[in-house]
């Protein structure tokens, strides 16, 4: 038969469509952040503020690292290098794990004041979505590392997921870390 069996066409498009919806949920929260800011007196209010800037920077670095490793794994599958792919998967899992911890700390930092004002609640929500996405990235990378499979469609899932993380993180960072401070 002139064509081989893969699932790349379907799975990559499926991931794209799912990613669009997940990004749209997050986008709704971002919309909420800005919408509430326009009606509120001060955003953030006196005595409250965005989570640690250092953690924000570190998370941004981990997003770049994780996405880079996932992309690397995707490249290496073409070469069929099992060891290389596995190392990249393990690395991506570690980056995702670290970022999940950092963003969970961001969420935790906002929770004590969340019942008083919409700002910390919204910030916690935005970071919560990203933290969950990091968690899922860890699970995916771990499963791939354990099952020792070198298939393009599997690595494509991981790379696509990290792309989604970048799409979720960038507006979060821009809204919370940058926009909150220039207010």
């Amino acid at each position: 038969m002139p064509v081989g069996p893969t699932r790349l066409a379907a799975s990559s498009w499926g991931l794209l469509m799912g990613g669009v919806s997940i990004a749209a949920v997050h986008g709704s929260f971002v919309f909420g952040f800005f919408f509430l800011s326009t009606g509120a007196g001060a955003w953030p209010p006196e005595g409250m503020g965005p989570p640690s800037a250092l953690r924000g920077l570190a998370t941004t670095g981990l997003v770049v690292l994780g996405a880079g490793l996932a992309a690397l794994a995707w490249r290496l599958t073409a070469a069929g290098s099992l060891a290389g792919v596995r190392s990249a998967h393990v690395g991506a899992a570690l980056a995702g794990g670290a970022a999940a911890v950092l963003t969970s700390l961001d969420v935790a930092s906002q929770i004590p004041e969340a019942v008083e004002h919409a700002y910390p609640g919204t910030v916690a929500l935005l970071h919560g979505v990203v933290a969950a996405a990091f968690g899922a990235a860890v699970v995916i990378a771990a499963v791939l590392a354990v099952t020792r499979r070198v298939r393009r469609e599997d690595s494509a899932v991981l790379a696509g997921w990290w792309l989604l993380i970048a799409v979720l993180w960038l507006p979060t960072y821009a809204a919370v870390q940058i926009w909150s401070r220039v207010q």
Binding site: F31, F35, L36, H117, A118, G121
Partner: peptide, 19 residues
């Protein structure tokens, strides 16, 4: 009790309507 829509906590009931 996070006041996303409750105006007493600077939430806004119109956010729900927009979304």
């Amino acid at each position: 009790g996070v006041p996303f829509y409750d105006p007493t906590g600077e939430g806004n009931p119109l956010l729900w309507q927009h979304l």
